[in-house]
Write a protein that binds this DNA or RNA. Structure first.
Ligand SMILES: [Zn+2]
Ligand SMILES: [Zn+2]
Ligand SMILES: [Zn+2]
Ligand SMILES: [Zn+2]
Lengths: 129, 129
DNA sequence: GCTTGACTCTGTAGTAACTACAGGGTTTAG
DNA sequence: CTAAACCCTGTAGTTACTACAGAGTCAAGC
C-alpha cells in the first residue's frame, strides 16, 4: 500500500500522514526501490488509532504516550485508564469554560433586547471596569 | 500611562499589548519624545474590551468586527446582537463536540474495568476498523 | 560622574497541529 | 512519447500568542 491508498482508506490527507511520521507519531514505513513509502496493515491500524485519538481531543503528546503503551505486547489497562481519566479532566475543564462563555453570551444577548436599541449597552459593559 | 503600567492595571503581559497593536486590534498610542508608548484611559478601555472578548472565546477576527461596531458613536444593538448570536453558535458547536468526546471517553474508560486487565481492549478498539 | 537595575524599543523565532505549496522525480495510460 | 497522476523533500502559512536577542533610556544610589 502506498501513501495515497492509505490516505484514501483512512480518509486522511497524504500530508497529514507524512506529518505524523515526521513528528514520530506514525512508525516509518519501508521504502520501495524508487523511494516511495510502502505501508502494511499494521501501519493502517496505527494511523487509525491516531485519528480516533484526534476525534477524542487528545493532544499529540497524549497520543504519543498512548502509542507508547500500545507498543507493549500486553498493554496494561491501568495505564490506558489513567490516560483516559487524565484527558477526561482536560475535556471537562474545557466544557466548563465553554459553558461559562455560553452563559455570559446569553446574558449579554439579553441586554441587547430585541436589537432595537440605538446605543448598545453591551459595548460599554465590556469596556468598563 | 506607559506600557508597563497599562499591563499591570489590565493584568495582561506587555508583549500581548504590543501584539494587539501590531495586528490592528488596539489603536496606536501616542509616543513620548523618547519613543515610549503613552496610553490614556480610552486605550485602557479598548484593551479591556479585547481581554473580555477573549474570555468569551471570540476569535481575533470577531473582536475586530466588534471593535468596528464599537467605534461608531452609536453602536447598534442589532449588530452587536448578531455577532453574539453568531458566536453563540460557534461556542455551542464546540460544546457539542466536547460532550461527544466526554461520552466516548467515559465509554472507553468503562471497558478498562478497574484497570486490572492485562491486555487492554481499548487499544484494539481504537486500532480496529 | 558613574554604575546598576528597571524599564522600553524593534524584530525574530518558537508553540500546536496541521495545511499548502514549490520544485522536483516516477509511473502508467493512451 | 507525452500527459496525467502519483510520489518525494523542504519550506512557509495558519491562530493567538510567548519568549527572547540586542539595543536604547531613565532614575536612584554612591
Ligand atoms: Zn483497558
Ligand atoms: Zn488531554
Ligand atoms: Zn446591544
Ligand atoms: Zn465565534
Amino acid at each position: 500500500m502506498q501513501i495515497g491508498q492509505l490516505a484514501n482508506r483512512s480518509e486522511c490527507p497524504v500530508e497529514t500522514i507524512r506529518y505524523y511520521e515526521k513528528i514520530g507519531l506514525l512508525p516509518e514505513p519501508d521504502r520501495l526501490p524508487n523511494g516511495y513509502r510502502s505501508y502494511n496493515d499494521q501501519h493502517r491500524k496505527w494511523l487509525q488509532l491516531i485519528l480516533r485519538c484526534r476525534t477524542l481531543g487528545f493532544t499529540q503528546n497524549e497520543v504519543k504516550r498512548l502509542s507508547g503503551i500500545a507498543k507493549q505486547d500486553q498493554p496494561a489497562c491501568a495505564d490506558v485508564r489513567s490516560l483516559l481519566v487524565e484527558h477526561l479532566v482536560d475535556v471537562r475543564k474545557k466544557l466548563r469554560d465553554l459553558k461559562h462563555m455560553e452563559d455570559a453570551l446569553i446574558r449579554l444577548k439579553a441586554k441587547c433586547q430585541n436589537g432595537n436599541l440605538n446605543d448598545c449597552p453591551v459595548i460599554d459593559e465590556l469596556m468598563d471596569s
